[in-house]
């Protein structure tokens, strides 16, 4: 097989091609699309969903599914902001470490149930999401922390930009790309990352080959929780608001983006680059719908269609590959 035909067979190539076509079409309809301000805004909208997608990607490669990340993100975000306000703390690094740790602990709890009781990840994460959201609203509070009560250090961090020409590009994009690079190294260049693929492909074989599958499960869900926690606080910093009811419906958007990026819901397949493209495609679609003044409710229809069509395509591809 030549390098070119191999490249053409990769699902990332297809996503990239579709992406370019969509961008050209949108650009024709509305030339303002290509303005740097709009593109930078679009990129900024990728950051939080993108980091969450990377966490879901890891879980999906391992053959599982994670429906708890929005709940973990909201818990990490809200608890950290409340703690900062209570302590009067003004900093950035420590809060982000705290939020990440909260997410990590929640993720490890998922892993405990999934591994110890051999439970289906969907049920475990559905349950833990409900528990975490319920506890947060019941024990911690239901009030939205507005811009006037948000820690100024977080707001300053979330709105930091770099000037490119006359436009400002959010620095958060580099955090996202940095995390993506780390995830790529982890998934493709470390044994622990290859263990995730092997486990998702065939858990029993992974055990026979000598992988520590327990460690893999804890790693996958712990990492997913940690990324969700980090993304949660980053989200609050970027919108200057901490809402304990935030991230409702993110499950679908993020899973749609990951599937769109070519990951298999049956495990064993998926890539960081594909996921980045999938996230970009999804934000592009939602962004265009907003620009075209299409009602919020219809966005759900579009995202739902995207997830079904993308899954159908990957299923079709997988079946064709087997024949």
């Amino acid at each position: 097989m030549t390098a070119v035909s191999k490249l053409l067979r990769r699902s990332e190539t297809a996503v990239l091609a579709i992406l370019l076509v969509v961008m050209i079409v949108i650009g024709v309809i509305n030339p303002a699309f290509w303005q740097a301000d709009n593109l930078f805004n679009l990129l900024r909208a990728n950051v939080v969903i993108g980091i969450m997608a990377l966490s879901v990607l890891t879980v999906m490669i391992s053959g599982g599914i994670d429906l708890s990340f929005p709940a973990f993100a909201v818990a990490a975000m809200y608890l950290t902001v409340i703690a900062m306000n209570a302590a009067g703390y003004q900093g950035v690094v420590l809060p982000f470490i705290g939020a990440t740790l909260i997410g990590l602990l929640c993720g490890l709890a998922n892993a405990f149930f999934i591994h110890t009781f051999r439970m289906i990840p969907m049920i475990v994460t559905l349950g833990s999401a409900s528990v975490v959201r319920g506890l947060l609203l019941g024990l911690v509070g239901t009030s939205i922390i507005n811009i006037d009560r948000m820690p100024p250090s977080l707001i300053a961090f979330g709105s930091s930009t770099v000037d490119i020409g006359s436009s400002k590009l959010s620095l958060m994009i580099f955090i996202y790309l940095g995390i993506a690079l780390l995830m790529w190294v982890f998934l493709t260049r470390t044994m622990a990352g290859r263990a995730v693929f092997a486990y998702g492909d065939d858990a029993e074989s992974a055990k026979r080959v000598g992988f520590n599958t327990r460690r893999t499960v804890y790693l996958v869900y712990g990492l997913a929780g940690a990324l969700a926690g980090f993304a949660g606080l980053l989200h609050a910093s970027m919108i200057w608001l901490a809402n304990p009811r935030d991230f409702v419906g993110y499950e679908l958007d993020v899973i749609a983006a990951v599937v769109l990026g070519g990951a298999s819901i049956f495990g064993g397949r998926g890539s960081v680059f594909g996921t980045i493209l999938g996230v970009f495609m999804l934000t592009l679609i939602k962004n265009s719908l907003i620009i075209m003044h299409i009602d919020n409710t219809w966005q759900g229809v579009v995202v739902g269609c995207v997830i079904v069509i993308a899954t159908a395509l990957t299923a079709w591809r997988d079946r064709k590959a087997l024949v």
């Binding site: 044994m191 290859r194 693929f197 092997a198 998702g200 492909d201 065939d202 029993e204 074989s205 992974a206 026979r208 080959v209 000598g210 992988f211 298999s264 495990g267 064993g268 397949r269």
Partner: peptide
């Protein structure tokens, strides 16, 4: 006990790498 989504090279090398 092979991994269908991984390449031939990786399937062969996993034991040794581990």
């Amino acid at each position: 006990s092979l991994f269908p989504s991984l390449t031939v090279a990786e399937n062969l090398a996993l034991n040794r790498l581990l």
